[in-house]
Design a protein around this nucleic acid. Structure first.
Lengths: 198, 198
DNA sequence: TGCGAAACGGAACTACGCTCCGTATCGTTA
DNA sequence: TAACGATACGGAGCGTAGTTCCGTTTCGCA
């Protein structure tokens, strides 16, 4: 899966020193440009910001998804690792689920355009979608299972649709003060509770 | 607002006969291409399907949003009109809300790429966003207010974020069998219920 | 110091949105 | 019905952006 040149976070310990340095430069430049113009910023802009040619970008990060993943890897890892911790700490599995989802939402809404790019069918971003899934789906499954086992939520909602739903709700957040993704996600999490029999 | 050439559904009763005919041809062609390739299909493709030049498209529909609106106007109107009817018919306002939202979701998930295009910040689609809002927000508000007045849902959720949330949840539906937008929207609607005090 | 491999840069190719203007068509008037 | 102005048409052409390709430069080892 990581035959694409960049793995882990630091530039791979392989190859020439200038290449490693350029990779780091690129990562920094991309982070800066993403923050300003969103993850769909023109490749030329990122190259310019980094002071390198476009060929260099494509050599290090064959697809835009590779670059995005490399830039945000740390934060996604952190989010993934927070899942089990919250489950252990929280008063109930449902509360832990709520908090964990909140973390994910906080991450997404502050990354301009990331939630939209993460869409499954977004050409050129399939790898990005897959990465988020690989990393977060197991965590989400664990939390959902725990909450279901505790009888706090229905057990017929899959982690995949749920996680995608949360991601979808974050699209466009941060560009419109009237739209509060956090709130809607809270409602969705409430909606997971078993239908109360009156 | 409709100084753009096309209004209502039939070609405007104005101007030359060939122009009217072309406008209808364009609408049919666009509907066909949208169904196959989604609403982001290249303008050239639509022109080719209709057997006209691109200039003709831009003359009749200055922006892509105008074309999309024209193609789907009927269905959006139908959806909007169904709101009050459901409210009058349904057993409860909350049930009516659920059914109405279901109608909206059914519409969106069958229109490849429409939910995504409807995004507020999508360059060139602002008009589309505005049209959906103009048409559906009042209906949604009415349903939400009725349900809130009946004490069936919290009263602190605005119609705008709710409607956008529903739209967002529909993004990417229909391209992935694992993702069930309908289900998630149902959960969201359940999440609207007042927190039950134990 | 010399040399082959690795990396670099950016011109060039493709795809697409959108505009612009010469040409064709319509329908009205003499 | 012939002629003419207004209206509409078509598609070449321009700008922008993604992606590739290859001649040039740099690195690091012998």
């Amino acid at each position: 899966m990581d035959d694409s040149g960049q793995n882990a976070d630091g530039p791979a310990a392989s190859k020439r020193k200038d290449a490693r340095r350029n990779q780091q430069t690129l990562l920094d430049a991309a982070a800066a440009v993403f923050a300003t113009s969103g993850v769909e910023a023109p490749v030329r802009d990122i190259a310019a910001e980094a002071g390198v040619g476009m060929g260099t970008i494509y050599r290090h990060f064959p697809t835009r998804a590779d670059l995005v993943i490399a830039v945000y890897r740390h934060q996604v890892e952190t989010c993934a690792e927070a899942g089990p911790a919250l489950l252990a700490a929280g008063p109930t599995p449902h509360a832990a689920l709520g908090r964990w989802v909140g973390l994910f939402v906080d991450f997404l809404v502050t990354k301009h355009g990331l939630a939209a790019a993460m869409q499954a069918d977004n050409a050129g971003f399939e790898t990005l979608h897959a990465y988020f899934l690989d990393r977060l789906l197991p965590v989400c499954t664990e939390l959902l299972d725990a909450a279901a086992a505790a009888g706090e939520i229905r057990s017929d909602v899959g982690a995949y649709p749920f996680l995608r739903g949360v991601g979808n709700l974050c699209i466009g957040a941060g560009t419109d003060p009237r739209y509060d993704a956090r709130r809607l996600v809270e409602l969705l999490v409430e909606g997971l509770r078993p239908p109360h029999r009156p």
